[in-house]
Amino acid sequence: MVENKHQWKAWIYLSPAIVLLLVFTVWPIINTLIMAFSENYSSLAGLGGQTFKFGLGNFQHVIGYKGFITCLKNTMLLCVLTVPLSTILALLISVCLNAIKPFQKLLQTIYFLPYVTNSIAIGMVFAAMFNIVGNISSQEQIITTAGIINNFLGLFGVEPINWINAGSSYWANITVMVVYIVWNALPFKILILLGGLQSVNKQYYDAAKIDSTPKWRVLTKITVPLLSPMIAYVVITGFIGGFKEYSSIVGIFDVGMGPAGDHGRLNTMVGYIYDSIKNQQGRASAAALILFGIIFVVTMINLYVSKKKTHY
């Protein structure tokens, strides 16, 4: 117990952290709430001493805006596609990694590398891989100078696809984004699942072996249920991360958030918030609160489902 007369000391020790948290976390949250519920909020006008009426105008604006619906749709789509895909892939890869004896540590390191690499840099590399280099006005040039992905597909006789350049289709763009986001999400998930796998008592597998359990059944009936707490964790954090998708799209399409000529086509919720932050802080705040609400609801659903499905 800290004695009463020394309590001020404790506060002094805590103050650096508390001050920083107050300035950079608590105040922004409060300010977001204020801005979101202020009609026609503008920070410049606010500095000039103007006061704003309380109202829901910002929310009405955001929800009514066509661009915001696009952002919402893109975000949802990327979440729904990438989270299950990356979780399943991560599970398979970690099971395989766990089964390999030689070079296990080396392979684990290699699989973890993307996690410590800058996502903008990775995005630029992916952009180059999916790119069509050169003047795309001539069809011939597309074929001869396509990026590595198109070259690879060419080995199987697939016509070069315009993945990300001007004139590319929406679904081509989404495919690139899914590949990139899944690839980027794998290392963290593998790390968590591999850690879980290595803490599973090996005797369960011995017991399964004695009972002549087929490999597939071992995976579905023993490994997955025993890993379920870790799987729930990566799914929940995956959805939270997915709803905040932004930098990956910037990495590939730049701040235009879409291929040349179709700017904004791949914009996301966070992208919308960034776009509005300069002149429309009120709307940006409202959008941020809406995003918070969505993540909150989805996480609650996730927790509810995982409580039913995870064991012990």
């Binding site: 008592n201 005797q203 369960y204 011995d206 017991a207 072996k209 004695i210 002549s212 359990t213 009936k221 023993i222 249920p225 025993l226 379920s228 064991h311 012990y312």
Partner: peptide
Amino acid sequence: VSPENRGVGLVFQNYALYPHM
């Protein structure tokens, strides 16, 4: 012969019952 095909029953020291079943 691999353990799967030996047709033995084995009771482990700490039983190794599947905890989720």
